[in-house]
């Protein structure tokens, strides 16, 4: 589960398993490089950790504020869904387009084609 380290009182997490970017080996890392998902790199470790948590949440059927029908069983991971679900990670360099593209690639071809269609509209 993704959380904000900056607001976590460390002692509350005693005995829990914690994964930071140092413990991550994910296709997202390569995808961020391929899609220019960063510039200065300051936000990147957070973006990647957050994206891993986000994909797990989506896989578990968790809705978001961008979800139109809350009662639906599965939510399609559109560009709008990714942006909303990743809104807790700001990139001061403005690499969000690359970040969304990287996540889309990893999330699967379905989402990519849908977002292309969206962008073409």
């Amino acid at each position: 589960m993704r959380i904000n380290a900056c607001l976590a009182l460390a002692i509350q997490y005693e005995g829990r398993e914690i994964t930071t970017i140092e413990g991550v080996a994910s296709p997202l890392q390569e995808a961020f490089v391929v899609h220019d998902g960063f510039q200065c790199g300051y936000c990147t470790s957070g973006q990647i950790c957050s994206a891993i948590g986000m994909l797990a949440e989506h896989g578990n059927g968790v809705p978001s504020a961008a979800t139109e029908h809350l009662d639906a069983d599965a939510v399609e991971l559109t560009g709008a869904e990714i942006r909303e679900r990743m809104s807790g990670n700001l990139c001061r360099c403005g690499a969000h387009n690359g970040i969304v593209a990287a996540i889309q690639e990893v999330a699967g071809a379905d989402a990519v084609s849908h977002v292309r269609a969206e962008a073409a509209r």
């Binding site: 993704r2 959380i3 976590a8 957050s50 948590g53 807790g88 990670n89």
Partner: peptide, 23 residues
């Protein structure tokens, strides 16, 4: 909550960020 009180699900989902809502 999603089926009977959608206003509540939407209200929570529109607050803070996913990381914060997890905490």
């Amino acid at each position: 909550v999603r089926s009977r009180y959608p206003m509540l699900a939407q209200a929570i989902l529109s607050g803070a960020s996913a990381q914060l809502r997890n905490m």
